[in-house]
Design a protein around this nucleic acid. Sequence first.
DNA 1: CCTCCGATCTGACTGATCGTCAGATTTCTG
DNA 2: CAGAAATCTGACGATCAGTCAGATCGGAGG
Lengths: 215, 215
Amino acid sequence: MTGQVRTVDGRVAGRRGQATRQKLLDCLREMLDTSPYRDVKVIDVARMAGTSPATFYQYFQDVESAILEIANDMAKDGARLKALTEDQGWTGKGGYAAAEALVDGFLDFWREYEPILRVVDLASAEGDKRFYKVRQSILNAVTTGLTEAIEEVHTKGKSADEVAPNAMAGTLVAMLAAVSGHQKGFETWKIKMKDVRPALSTLVYMGITGKKPPR
Amino acid sequence: MTGQVRTVDGRVAGRRGQATRQKLLDCLREMLDTSPYRDVKVIDVARMAGTSPATFYQYFQDVESAILEIANDMAKDGARLKALTEDQGWTGKGGYAAAEALVDGFLDFWREYEPILRVVDLASAEGDKRFYKVRQSILNAVTTGLTEAIEEVHTKGKSADEVAPNAMAGTLVAMLAAVSGHQKGFETWKIKMKDVRPALSTLVYMGITGKKPPR
DNA sequence: CCTCCGATCTGACTGATCGTCAGATTTCTG
DNA sequence: CAGAAATCTGACGATCAGTCAGATCGGAGG
């Protein structure tokens, strides 16, 4: 469906074109690893890729569009997060283990894509719809997964739902994303990530089941 | 102690100078309300303030330094968040009310300073120590307040602490900050903020006490 | 009211980046 | 190998960053 890689002026890119395009994306991603987002310049990316700035503009509207491209790839990989919410029993010891797995999934995912996710976060908070959509496609999948889990727990136990399941799910997902995005920050505090993991897992478990996790 | 407002080259600014400086800060803040961080140009800020770019550089090293200035003012106001964690009983109905107050405090604070907080978040995640320090001074105050609350609950109840109090506190604070920073995002989903508030309050309450909130 | 001096502001400049285009170069096709 | 298509780039006008010497302002003192 989407397959065709195109240049800015609409032509379909051939073998060589796709290679340079990819090289530019790789260099951009490396650049974002080391430089502040605000300081990433097209000219630097081009230099690093051994091409001219004009070539960059042949494949991307601007820096943002290129980052969006990387973000879209990332979003595809985000499917692995949704998988962690499916076909799980969320009660008892197994439920806590599922929560732990979800937490680790988030921590790993954010570690891998940290710089990109930072930009996605900023841009979508600033109201850029394209980035917002990417963020959606990652987080919303997880949120709906968790929403279903909570609804299931609610119907099995008779407990009337004091809190809207989708709000609880959204909140938990936001929490996971936030903590995952500040792992370095936590470490620089006197808070160890090995202590944070159980805190997250506990909150996820409690948020879903309303109960304290089994010891 | 800090009082003296100085120009970049070290002179103490007089009445007129302080006024211009403040006007530049105001315009910068307004600019951040409407433009993406990456697109904020010194020249635009200067134009909006009715002065020349050279004047801007008389008072600020660069755009970041100016934003840092705004962020520092914000951090002072952040004291009101810490206040919400103090002198509270965190158990029973009063505890849930305290959790609600804390949640509302965060939501309000973020609504007020949203664009600045976005930049602070990005810059500190990117490793800028000056911004990291600002973020710290706001969140760490709350975190230590909550840590003490959790420790108190733990010692009053005999419950051995399964989760490190500071990790739990840090996680809750990160959650509050994240959700507060994405209020618009939630609304754009099918999730209503009026449902999110109780979800947050419930999680805060459960995180501190380990129990379900009273109805 | 005028003069003078320090505080403040700015025009103008250099250098860097943006974003574009026509033309050069490379690769593919037959 | 010629011709065409794809790809790349040098060069350019426009914009912005950041600097500096000199112009302007506002108040103190006469």
